[in-house]
Simulated assay, not measured.
Amino acid sequence: MQERILGRTGVPVSVIGLGAWQLGADWGRVDEEAALATLSAAHEAGVTFIDTADVYGDGRSERIVGQFVRSLPDGRRITVATKMGRRVPQEPRHYNLANFRAWNDRSRENLGVDTLDLVQLHCPPTEVYHTDEVFDELDGMVAEGRMKAYGVSVETTAEALAAIARPNVASVQIIFNMLRLKPLDEVLPAAEKAGVGIIARVPLASGLLSGRYDEHTTFGADDHRTYNRHGEAFDQGETFSGVDYATGLAAVRRLAALRPEDATMAQVALRWIIDHPAVSVVIPGARNAQQARGNAEAASRPPLPPETHEAVTVVYDELVRGSVHDRW
């Protein structure tokens, strides 16, 4: 498994990580046995970075990840990134030291550690990125030993650029995939220049880029791909990358023509992301061990040829750009 440095943390991590949202909630039920098997398969495939959040299943994801990491022998280091901030109404006033400490205490308890590897503000209100006191408080928590480093998870490229300009932000997590190319314009170059890590999330556009879905696919009532298609519960961009489902299917059918015979569409989509050196780690989710292993295998594939990258841009420009590029 190839490794890259995770921005200002200075820590090497596997270029393919694991997003643990699915193991908590909002993607249909994943029982604990299956969740632990998924984590084990990812680890065996060389994954050394797991991304979770305090709000995934109201702490369930953190607890399962913590249980798994504690079960590993001391010789294999896993970096666990978590997030905080979505447990309260999304108003800037809630981003204060008292809440930070309470959220931090809860995550440390859930994960079973004294010091968290990386804590990310979880897509906070835009005003938060411009509030000096917020980042002063985060600096203080690092100094106290509550966490080793902090970063942000963002919805928009403007938020990402504001975060990159902060001197102690270690990483920026942003949606980046074949259907969301805007980070290429400014965010990835700025992050690379500043030495800030990029964590690419929603890499398969909520599964669209796996190529497994069609017009007849249905999702459970407890799956955000049912209840958040139009942003009813949280930012619309988190579901299918904000792309209209029918448009997404049409784009993926064209992109599928780029797939080598010995690769899955998901592996091509992940390889496309890690072909960009500014990306530190990409965090596909997985609901079972087979998916986790398949995702990890993308790291061992050769880089995609230039004509494939050019074709992705053409599909984006013709089908997707008009509906998403200026929104995020």
Results as ranks from 00 to 15, higher is better:
Tyr95Thr: 03
Tyr56Asn: 09
Glu310Gln: 13
Ala53Val: 04
Ile78Asn: 02
Gln120Arg: 10
Pro189Asp: 03
Asp317Tyr: 05
Asn96His: 11
Glu62Cys: 01
Arg271Met: 10
Met84Cys: 08
Ala162Phe: 12
Arg29Leu: 11
Ala45Cys: 06
Pro305His: 00
Gly195Pro: 09
Leu39Pro: 00
Val113Cys: 09
Ala266Phe: 14
Lys193Asp: 13
Phe219Lys: 11
Val128Arg: 13
Gly197Ser: 05
Tyr245Phe: 15
Gln173Arg: 00
Lys148Asn: 13
Ser153Thr: 13
Gly322Arg: 11
Arg180Met: 06
Asp114Val: 00
Gly19Ala: 01
Val15Gln: 13
Asp136Phe: 04
Leu181Ser: 04
Val243Lys: 01
Phe135Gln: 04
Leu36Met: 07
Ala311Gln: 11
Gln22Lys: 06
Glu238Ser: 15
Arg253Gln: 15
Met265Asp: 04
Thr157Ile: 10
Tyr245Asp: 07
Glu232Val: 04
Ile64Met: 13
Pro73Asp: 13
Leu270Val: 12
Val314His: 05
Leu179Ser: 01
Gly46Lys: 11
Ala194Leu: 10
Ile16Val: 13
Ile50Arg: 10
Leu179Ala: 00
Gln291Thr: 12
Gln2Glu: 14
Gly24His: 01
Pro284Glu: 01
Gly237Leu: 14
Asp139Cys: 03
Val134Cys: 06
Gly237Ser: 14
Ala296Ser: 09
Gly294Glu: 14
Val324Ser: 01
Phe240Leu: 13
Gly242Leu: 11
Ala149Arg: 02
Asp214Phe: 06
Leu161Asn: 02
Glu215Lys: 10
Glu238Ile: 13
Leu208Tyr: 02
Asn168Lys: 13
Asp54Ala: 07
Ala266His: 12
Ala165Thr: 00
Thr115Phe: 05
Ala289Gln: 08
Asn99Thr: 03
Ser280Phe: 07
Arg8Phe: 05
Val314Tyr: 01
Ala256Phe: 07
Trp103Ala: 12
Leu255Ser: 09
Glu91Met: 14
Thr157Tyr: 09
Leu111His: 09
Pro260Trp: 03
Gln290Ala: 15
Ile199Val: 15
Ala246Trp: 05
Gly220Ser: 12
Ala298Gln: 14
Thr48Gly: 01
Thr115Cys: 14
Val169Asp: 00
Thr48Ala: 06
Val314Phe: 01
Gly24Asp: 00
Gln267Gly: 10
Ser300Gln: 15
Arg86Asn: 14
Leu304Lys: 12
Val315Gly: 00
Leu188Gly: 06
Gly211Ala: 12
Val279Pro: 00
Val268Glu: 00
Val80Ala: 07
Arg77Asn: 09
Leu258Trp: 08
Thr308Val: 15
Pro303Gly: 07
Gly207Arg: 06
Glu127Asn: 06
Gln267Met: 12
Val282Gln: 06
Asp223Met: 05
Glu159Trp: 05
Phe49Asn: 08
Leu319His: 10
Asn228Pro: 04
Ala170Leu: 07
Gly19Leu: 00
Asp74Pro: 05
His94Trp: 14
Phe135Leu: 08
Gly237Asn: 10
Leu270Cys: 12
Leu138Ile: 05
Phe49Ile: 09
Gly17Asp: 06
Thr226Trp: 02
Thr79Tyr: 07
